[in-house]
């Protein structure tokens, strides 16, 4: 059984977007998501730059060595249950920046990832699909957390 709070939160999953060294291609597509053509506000999602208000982290980029601590910091500040979506090939595997000396090679090297989005740059349609998939995972997580809270 989900609590009232979890039910409400799933209706308005606020997202926080953070760039950890991507080429900006996926970031543009994340912005395209927020704007009229793709408009993820249909799903109640809004972009909030504040990790404490966010439910979903949209992370782009292969995580440069300098962004590593910031990313971990942002992840820790986000309230549970939280969802991490790695947008694009470089966030998922670090592929285009494979031989670069200053990258970690993927978001999952630093923080746990729930959904991987393929594509370089990932298309907004796939991002919407990832968001919907993520929300079903989020529902499971919230139900688990509520159960734990009840004891």
């Amino acid at each position: 059984m989900m609590t009232l709070e979890s039910k409400m939160r799933i209706r308005s999953p606020w997202i926080m977007h953070f760039d950890t060294g991507s080429c900006n291609g996926c970031d543009m597509e994340v912005w395209a998501l927020l704007t009229p053509r793709y408009d993820i506000e249909r799903f109640g999602a809004m972009n909030r730059a504040n990790p404490k208000q966010a439910d979903i982290l949209l992370i782009t980029g292969p995580v440069t060595k300098r962004c590593e601590d910031r990313l971990r910091n942002l992840y820790e500040q986000t309230p549970e249950p939280k969802l991490v979506i790695a947008c694009g090939d470089c966030a998922s595997t670090g592929a285009p920046f494979h031989n670069c000396y200053n990258v970690n090679g993927g978001v999952d090297k630093v923080i746990p990832v729930d959904v991987y989005v393929p594509g370089c740059a990932c298309r907004p349609e796939v991002l919407i699909d990832a968001l919907v998939l993520g929300l079903s995972k989020w529902r499971e997580k919230a139900a688990g957390a509520d159960k734990e809270a009840e004891g």
Binding site: G21, T64, R66, C67, R70, F97, C100, N102
Partner: peptide, 9 residues
Amino acid sequence: YNHRGMEHA
């Protein structure tokens, strides 16, 4: 923050 080392790559 975004330095990846593109000149090397």
